[in-house]
């Protein structure tokens, strides 16, 4: 099963390589990883999506907790969470195709952020499912380049 972990760490150089190294060493699989500063600039938050059974996830959390720079580890998989990732996708778009692509963009409520001679860049945010659906719909036109972030996640309401 996939687990989403929200990991608060000291905002210092080297922390990310520490955390990533730990996963590699102990043979855990990182599905995705996203990191950035939080409301407190001395703290970064790493959102990790990890594949594994309960036992593996427990070990992952404990090993993370052992790191001196790791402040807190929360497994938010079973919480009510908002999950988003960002997609940038360059799709081939000659004049004939543009209309159709625009429609798809509209349906998914994403945006076109660059218009080239023969291509468009589409920007989308959403959860895994939505992002997959967008990619699937645009694939027939010819995807020239695709980049996406890992998940970031936040627990809903007051906790």
């Amino acid at each position: 099963m996939k687990h989403t972990l929200a990991v608060l760490v000291e905002n210092q150089p080297g922390v990310l390589s520490h955390v990533a190294g730990l996963f590699a060493r102990r043979g855990y699989n990182i599905e995705s990883l996203a990191v950035g500063e939080t409301e407190d600039s001395s703290i970064s938050r790493i959102t990790l999506v990890v594949e594994g059974d309960e036992k593996v996830i427990e070990q992952v959390s404990k090993q993370l907790n052992k790191q001196v720079e790791v402040i807190k580890v929360n497994d938010i998989t079973n919480d009510e969470i908002v999950v988003r990732q960002l997609l940038l996708l360059k799709v081939a778009a000659d004049l004939a195709a543009r209309q159709e692509i625009m429609q798809i963009v509209e349906i998914f409520r994403c945006r076109i952020v660059d218009i080239g001679k023969r291509s468009l860049i589409v920007e989308a945010t959403g959860d895994e499912e939505k992002i997959q659906a967008i990619i699937k719909s645009l694939r027939p036109f010819g995807i020239q380049e695709l980049v996406r972030t890992g998940n970031v996640a936040m627990v809903r309401g007051v906790k």
Partner: peptide, 8 residues
């Protein structure tokens, strides 16, 4: 003393 050892 090391929680990570327990159940490992």
């Amino acid at each position: 003393i090391d929680a990570a050892e327990i159940g490992k």
